[in-house]
């Protein structure tokens, strides 16, 4: 794995100047490497992980189990890609087990998510059934704990 990817994965929030220092590159080189990763479709984007109060976030989230009919030649791909293109869909995975796709959906309100499921998702030809679960509360997002303030643990300033 490239050093720059390892550094991104460590999850810190270094800016490009700091990344340049750590990697012993110029800032221009770091930007160039990041551009290449983007061009190659490896680095798709960097998004903040926020811990907003429910009223601030203004989104309702749901997970939907979707059963679909596989197609000769393409399997589940064509339908999965089609479903993934909706703005409401945050993530979409092909799963083993009792259903085929697990779809994470965002919407401004419960009604909007419900409407998306009943009007868009379940009406697509090839979609056999959906089971929608609304998320009530998030405890961990992308490796970050959300449960209140994380207390800094104290280390002695100087130790043997």
């Amino acid at each position: 794995m490239k050093p720059i990817i390892k550094l991104l994965l460590e999850g810190g929030s270094l800016n490009t100047a700091q990344m340049a220092q750590v990697l012993n590159l110029s800032e221009a080189e770091v930007n160039c490497q990041l551009d290449t990763l983007k061009k190659d479709g490896v680095l798709l984007g960097l998004r903040p992980v926020l811990n907003l109060a429910d009223e601030d976030s203004g989104v309702v989230r749901a997970v939907i189990e979707v059963r679909i009919t596989p197609e000769r030649g393409g399997g589940f791909n064509r339908l999965a890609e089609r479903i993934s293109k909706f703005d409401e869909v945050e993530s979409c995975y092909l799963m083993s087990g009792g259903y085929d796709l697990l779809v994470f959906v965002n919407g401004a309100s419960l009604q909007k998510v419900a409407a998306f499921v009943s009007e868009k998702l379940s009406t697509i030809e090839g979609v056999l059934s959906t089971a929608t679960h609304f998320m009530l509360r998030s405890y961990k997002e992308h490796g970050f704990l959300l449960g209140g303030k994380v207390e800094e643990t104290e280390r002695l300033k100087v130790a043997p």
Partner: peptide, 28 residues
């Protein structure tokens, strides 16, 4: 008296110093 101890007493009084003086991991 440990040389570390002497130094610790000085550092402990200083607020918001960056310490590279520890002898243990930063990970919990």
């Amino acid at each position: 008296k440990s040389g570390i101890r002497d130094f610790f007493d000085i550092v402990a009084k200083m607020k918001d110093a960056i310490s590279l003086g520890v002898g243990e991991p930063d990970f919990d």
